[in-house]
Structures are given as C-alpha cells and as structure tokens.
Design a protein around this nucleic acid. Structure first.
Lengths: 145, 145
DNA sequence: GCTTGACCTTCCCATGATGGGAAGCCCTAT
DNA sequence: ATAGGGCTTCCCATCATGGGAAGGTCAAGC
C-alpha cells in the first residue's frame, strides 16, 4: 500500500512517516519503480505502535528504544519496564512543575478583585513587589501589616 | 548599563533579551554611539517581570498582554485575572493529559514482571493487541501466574 | 488515447523559546 | 599598545509537526 493508506491505517501522518524514516526511527520503506514508498500490514502495525507510544508522551528517541525491545524476542521485560518508569518519572516531574504554577496563579487570582479597578496582586507579584501574596500595596510590605 | 548587566540583574539571558526585542515583546533598547544596547533600572524590572511570567508558564504572546496591562494604569484587574485564569485552565488541561498518560503507564508497568522474561504488557499494549491491560497474551494473563 | 484529479515525490520554510558559536568591533585595565 | 572580556550580527540546531510549491505518477472515465 502507499503512504497515504499507511497513514490512514496507523494514524501517523504521511509527513511524519517520511520524517521517521529520514531520522532512522523506522527502516526505509520499499519503493515502486516510480519511486512511491510501499508499506505492508506489519509496517502499519509498527506505525501504530509509534503513535501509541507518542500518545503516552514518549519522545521519539525513547520510542526507538521501545521499538528495539519490541523487535527483540529475547528482551528482558525489565528493560521495557524501566523505560516506562522513566517516562512516568518525567511526566510526574512536569506535572509537579505545572501544579506549582497553578497553585501560585490560583492563589494570586483569588486575591484579585477581577473588576474594573486596576489594582491587581497578579501584576504586583510579577513586578516582584514582594512574596507570592503581595497585595496591591505600593508602600512596602503589606502582607503582615 | 549594558546587556550583560541587564541579564544578570533580571535573570533573562542576553540572548533572550535580544530575542524579545526582535520579536517586539519589549521596545528597542537605546544604543551607545558604538552600538551597544543600554538598559535602565526599569528595563531590568520589566525583564524580571517577563521572567517571572515565564516561570509561571505564560507563553511569550500572553506575556505581551500582561505587559500591556501592567503599563496601562487604567487597566481593569478583571482582564489580568482573565489571563491568569486562562493560563490556569491551560495548565490544568495539560496536567490532566499527562496524568492520564501516567495512569495508563503505571497500570501497564504494574502488570509487567520486570525481570528477564520477554513478555510485557507494555509492549503488548503499544502493539495494539487489546485494551490497556492486555496481558502478555499467547496463553492468558501471565502477570499473576 | 487523453484528460482530470488525486496521490506521490523532494525541497524549503515555519513554528517557540532557547542555546551555541563564529567573525568582528569596542572598551578598559595594565 | 596589548590583552581580555564584552558587545554586535548572523547562522545553525533543537523537537515534532505542518504548510506549501514544483513536478512526477496513477487510475478512472470519456
């Protein structure tokens, strides 16, 4: 089948299939005499594997390792598990970062009247007036006055 | 002061200061006769504002809006709050996505023996065998054998 | 057979925020 | 005057993805 069908069948765009080939994530596809790439059912399965891994947030580099393990019948599941756990750890780290941002923003937004007055603890905080909770102040530390 | 001092004082790299100028986020800095950019204390304060906003995950485009509101003395705090809440919503959406990935991965990893055997529900899932929990197949659940 | 439209190819460019590095000018302290 | 560090611009790279142009190919319908 042609690249368009492989794309439809796998959920990976034709652009990305070519990109994956170019970067070596997947082997070069066969070609027709006229130069069209050809794909088999198992190629589509591999592409679907890749798409699922992407959906789980794996970087392309890690997907390369996953594919290698997938193809290796004498793999140790411990190696796969390790990749998954690294991925989990990375995601948890990013989640924690973002949760910290949300906490700060939420805190600041709650202190903001949100009406037509200009005073705003959010801007005051960004300005670096004081700590996270810096009230609209403009006159020194207001948070324990 | 020169760009290096502004960078040190604000926590924004010289590279990024030039980039922000180039993209119009900040106005063009003054120049000495010989072409060096010059910065004032309030420029540094603006840069610090930008860096804090970045630390809260705001995209540069949103920071432009925040800066405009910051400079606008007749702003309505409601507009600032709206930006903050949009940011919170965006972060929460990404967090939810990642949490879903973690949940799936965690689930799969727990079903993986993680030893020297090749069977692995993680790969089986990526392969698209069945549902999230697809056990190492060819013979039923292996992880509680 | 020829046309048409859909598909394929390669190549270049763009994203967003950031860094690296080179070539060359400037400034200051010795 | 010379050395060193800082500044300038310009180009390139990241990472995964898409857009689009120019041109070749294929299959269906007339």
């Amino acid at each position: 089948m042609n690249i368009g069908d492989a794309a439809k069948g796998s959920g990976v765009s034709a652009k990305m299939i070519r990109y994956y080939e170019q970067t070596g994530l997947i082997p070069s596809a066969g070609r027709t005499i006229s130069g069209y790439r050809t794909y088999t059912g198992s190629d589509v399965q591999m592409l679907r594997f890749i798409r699922r891994a992407r959906d789980l947030g794996f970087q392309v580099e890690a997907i390369g390792e996953l594919l290698a393990l997938w193809r290796d019948r004498s793999r140790h599941s411990a190696d796969v598990k390790q990749l998954a756990q690294d991925q989990i750890a990375g995601l948890r780290r990013k989640i924690a970062e973002m949760e910290s941002m949300v906490a700060t923003l939420d805190h600041l937004a709650q202190g903001c009247s949100g009406d037509d007055r200009p005073e705003c603890p959010i801007l005051a905080d960004l300005e670096g007036e004081a700590s996270l909770v810096a009230p609209a102040c403009h006159g020194g530390p207001g948070f324990n006055r």
